[in-house]
Write a protein that binds this DNA or RNA. Sequence first.
RNA 1: GCGUUCGUGGUGUAGGGGUAGCACAAGAGGUUUCCAACCUCUUUGCCCGGGUUCAAAUCCCGGCGAGCGCACCA
Length: 574
Amino acid sequence: MLDMPDEGRLERMSAMLRRRGVVLPAFDIYGGVSGLIDYGPVGASIKRRLTQKWIDHWLSHGDIVEIDSPTITPEAVLVASGHVGEFNDLMTECKGCGSVFRADHLVEHLHPNADSLNSDEIDKLLSTGIECPSCNESEWTSAQPMNLMFSTKIGAMSAGRTAYMRPETAQGMFMLYPALYRHFRQKLPFGAIQTGKGYRNEISPRQGMIRLREFNMAELEYFIDPEHPPLSDLNRRTEIVSLVPDPDGPHAGESRMSFGAALDAGIVRHPTVAWFLARTWDFLIEVGIHPAKIRFRQHASTEMAHYAEDCWDCEIHGEHGWIECVGIANRTCHDLESHESHSNTKSLRAWRQFDQPRSQTLDRLVPNGAVIGPTFRGDAGAVVAALELLTELPESFPFELTLANGNSVSIHESMVERRIDTVNVSGEWFTPHIIEPAFGIDRIIWHVLDHAYEEVEKEGEAYTFLRLSEGISSVDCVVLPLFDKEGMPDLAKEITSAINALPHSRAEMDSSKSIGRRYARADEIGVPWALTVDHTSLEDGSVTVRRRDDQLQVRAFVDEILTRMTNGTMQELF
RNA sequence: GCGUUCGUGGUGUAGGGGUAGCACAAGAGGUUUCCAACCUCUUUGCCCGGGUUCAAAUCCCGGCGAGCGCACCA
């Protein structure tokens, strides 16, 4: 089904991307830094346009808004999120062969909870004769934490607080949950998106722009009521997609079906997750990813991230094989609950109104402060707190009450009043669940370029097209004076300005070298339209319009072209 | 991080102790009535740092970077 790997295509494509200013190694004149890239003049436009399409894609839902948060993040936030623990794996190196391993993996058969050990404890276990999996030696260096986050300080010198460059944008949306809840008039579901940089100090970045140390992410956090998950009608969707369900589950093996069928069969476990799989598909198709090179892979329960309950990767096939480009996870209430307890707030919840107010009978012991105060003095507060927590009321007085500090006190009848109240409860507080689609923008751009890059033979010569979707290419059209004289460059300049005055349209003029060469240059970086100014243009204001994908030409008037550029109907000229 | 192959104009390559060459691309001019044409001229290079040598792009050491394998990671 998929094309056989073409020797050298990757090299030729990478060379083109560098030569034409799409993607280049960063800091190249200083030798470069692995895992850091530049988007050049062509690539930066492509990235901006693709990112904008992503933003528009989600904002069009109506219940999703955009936010923007700092990349520098205080340590406490990332402790609560689990990143400080998760990203601080202890590593050890075999003195025999130099192989590096996660220390907790080497000793996990000796300890039930190996990843909670500190480095001294791990060193002790390692010295009990653990053999190196690759050379069977058993001499280990002492375990060192390998932090995958870039750390920094907020504030100067020793007074500075420890902070990290964010490893994901998601935490920003969680921090703003209270503001979002207010913005949406306290009604779920709603979502927030953010695009921006994320940072991970990868041990060994590889595969060009696939694994970067600084990368562009685009994440959506969608907050839902787990008891009333929003339902969308997937039955109208007819596309058949590749799914690779959990290999340990009942549906193991690759299958092809519609999104609706996958949900009905229980392969996708959550209706909102299924909906976002479908909307992810829509986006990828819109920006020019080849449908046959997309598949959705469900995480095995063993590889699931620490927070997730059902997790799907959207993988795209390209020169580097199948690459995870989007992760769609049901993060449940994990993040908000964790931030609530670490930050000691109660503001990360939502109110669920009951259909009918529930009448509830409260049977409790109301403390009598006038007696409890003088009797217990300093402990009085603790006694009142303990009384409020009582669920089973005593049969008789006096009875023994255990306080939070473990002490026990005797409660006499005079200290409390038994009160039975009937109250109407109209709803309850709960922690929303979160469905998170997280997009790796750089990886998607790579695959957009990969799928668009096409090498053909034209009159015996190698010829390259970048068949980018309209609206993704760096510019929408080039304007070419057929000759660089006789007023043609002037008219071409006018037309270029007119197009650039349109909202969201970009044109460039190119007047150097032969017309054929200029078409070729535009084809190589994926410009979909070329307008050529010739002698007739000077007489009647018409130009020839050339379509990149089949190189057909028609003649049209500039006014009509401007209109069609605006409303996206250029194709109808042909 | 280990092993391995490698690093020469913008791109692709030749040279492998003594003046760095070619092709394409790019710029200027000419020519040309729509698909990488042609002519003239021009610009741009031995990844970085040490060492050996009268002399290093070339040999040696280290670093950085790229590809691949292992490991790590999502």
